[in-house]
């Protein structure tokens, strides 16, 4: 069974590992028949979607649970919902086919964020910057992590940047970024590229995860998510 969960304000500061444990415990509390691995240290057979950075909220966190017996999705959702702590909600649940006995999220290659920024916004400059980025062939970026500097071209990781709304004191941006083995660009880094200081005056909210069919930057066409409901644009 795959489910889509929302990670809200009260729990946005928990890490991905904390999140994984919290969901595993909620499933136990809900008495849902999750299968366990064999061996010395049996653990629940759960797969999780791409991690969310600490501080970000989301309405599309994915968890896939291998069950020992079939459960009606409606019942699954109901029981899980009753066992979830404040700040975590289950939005949808659907049965997914096992590929080779496992469910993985490896096919996901696109992630969408809605970012709200508070602070003085130069709307013209912002729009210009967005156009520049979309038209650029290359977008060099320097990432500093744990004392090491990595320089890379961020352009292939950016599918689309749109300004949803902007005023003098705030802006909402929609970032459609690529996800996958070739690397990921964090939304905070995108804000950096846009010249908006990524301070705590920004709230990043993940809204969608899917598999796109098109390899080139542009408007991706989402496909069926692991056999689940077709997402409408």
């Amino acid at each position: 069974m795959v489910c889509r969960l929302a990670k809200g304000q009260p729990v946005k500061f928990i890490s991905h590992l904390d999140w994984m444990r919290a969901i595993a415990r909620a499933l136990r509390r809900a008495r849902l028949p999750v299968a366990y691995s064999a061996g010395y240290n049996p653990h629940p057979r759960l797969a999780y979607g791409p991690p969310l950075s600490v501080g970000n909220t989301s309405e599309t966190e994915l968890v896939a649970a291998t069950l020992t017996e079939a459960v009606d999705p409606g019942t699954f959702q109901e029981r899980l919902a009753a066992a979830l702590p404040p700040g975590i909600r289950v939005l949808a649940a659907w049965p997914a086919p096992l590929l080779g006995g496992k469910v993985t999220f490896g096919e996901l290659d696109t992630v969408v964020y809605l970012v709200t920024v508070w602070g003085p916004v130069d709307q013209e400059a912002l729009n210009t910057k967005v156009s520049q980025i979309m038209e650029a062939e290359q977008l060099p970026y320097r990432r500093l992590r744990v004392g090491k500097v990595k320089e890379f071209d961020a352009r292939p990781l950016v599918r689309l940047v749109q300004v949803v709304e902007a005023s003098e004191s705030s802006a909402v941006l929609k970032l459609t970024l690529r996800l996958g083995p070739s690397g990921t660009l964090r939304p905070e880094e995108m804000l950096d590229l846009l010249g908006l200081a990524a301070t705590c005056h920004a709230q990043v909210h993940r809204t969608a995860l899917y598999t796109a069919k098109t390899p080139t930057p542009g408007r991706p066409r989402p496909t069926r998510l692991l056999g689940g409901a077709r997402r409408r644009r």
Binding site: P10, F13, A22, P85, T199, C200
Partner: peptide, 23 residues
């Protein structure tokens, strides 16, 4: 508090909303 939490390590040390915490 939200803004302070953004600036420190392990901000979950300073938030509640855990299962069974009282509201």
């Amino acid at each position: 508090w939200d803004q302070l939490c953004c600036r420190v390590t392990k901000p979950a040390r300073y938030t509640d909303a855990e299962w069974n915490a009282i509201t």
